[in-house]
């Protein structure tokens, strides 16, 4: 893919994530990790090549069906993208609300999840009043709250200390154990190594795979 008339950011990227798999996405800054994730969560379109999601060619999916696809993908944005005028609680409840859930049905889940990421006492706080790490944990809570089939996380541990990073990793692993396909873009080599999960390395617009459980395919 390319942005506008610039040179191609991603050139030779072919891979398939098996349902229920767990991968890290690494690579130098500017390699195109975020761009690759954007393609998967349907924020950008490839200038060439094809992307399949849940066994369907993305380009062939009717626009009216795309929202339902997006609801199955949880995203932790690199820049969080929290809604500043909504409380932490409302931010986390957002995906459930969009999916049409009833507040009575999900509000205890939201509260539990917020406690789990260590924001029990910040539920009513507005994002601008949170620390970088708190924002990050909030963004993660929002991404996982509706148990997505795919979780994409862009530098989810960039702003937190080791203890919190491990806790977040544990959350992802737990989610993966329950069936979610996980792809995490990260610079944190310690974390990548400690997790022992397979790695996709992006450099010069090309993708290489390390570790186990990667199969070839089109993406």
């Amino acid at each position: 893919m390319r942005y506008g008339r610039s040179t191609e950011v991603l050139k030779d990227v072919s891979f398939a994530l098996a349902p229920g798999s767990f991968h890290f996405l690494t690579g130098p800054s500017g390699a195109g990790k975020s761009s690759l994730l954007k393609l998967i969560y349907l924020a950008e379109r490839p200038s060439r090549g094809t992307i399949e999601l849940f066994g369907r060619d993305v380009e062939a999916i009717a626009p009216s069906d795309r929202p339902y696809l997006r609801r199955r993908i949880g995203v932790v944005f690199q820049e969080f993208r929290l809604l500043d005028h909504l409380t932490a609680f409302d931010n986390v409840a957002l995906p459930l609300r969009i999916a049409g859930g009833k507040p009575e049905a999900y509000r205890t889940d939201v509260a539990e999840l917020l406690s789990w990421v260590g924001l029990k006492n910040r539920m009513h706080a507005l994002p601008p009043t949170l620390s970088g790490g708190e924002k990050q944990r909030l963004a993660i809570a929002r991404a996982v709250v509706n148990r997505p089939d795919i979780l994409l996380a862009d530098e989810p541990t960039g702003n937190v200390d080791d203890a919190h990073a491990l806790r977040i990793l544990k959350l992802f692993v737990e989610l993966n154990r329950l069936g979610t396909t996980v792809l995490i873009a990260s610079h944190d080599e310690d974390l990548v190594a400690r997790s022992g999960q397979p790695v996709l390395h992006l450099e010069g617009g090309r993708l290489r795979a390390f570790g186990r459980s990667l199969r070839g395919g089109q993406a």
Binding site: L86, T87, T108, R122, A125
Partner: peptide
């Protein structure tokens, strides 16, 4: 303030 927040009484805030 945060101690007073009761999730059981929470209602969705306006999105705008």
């Amino acid at each position: 303030m945060s101690e007073l927040f009761d999730p059981k009484r929470w209602r969705p805030a306006p999105l705008l």
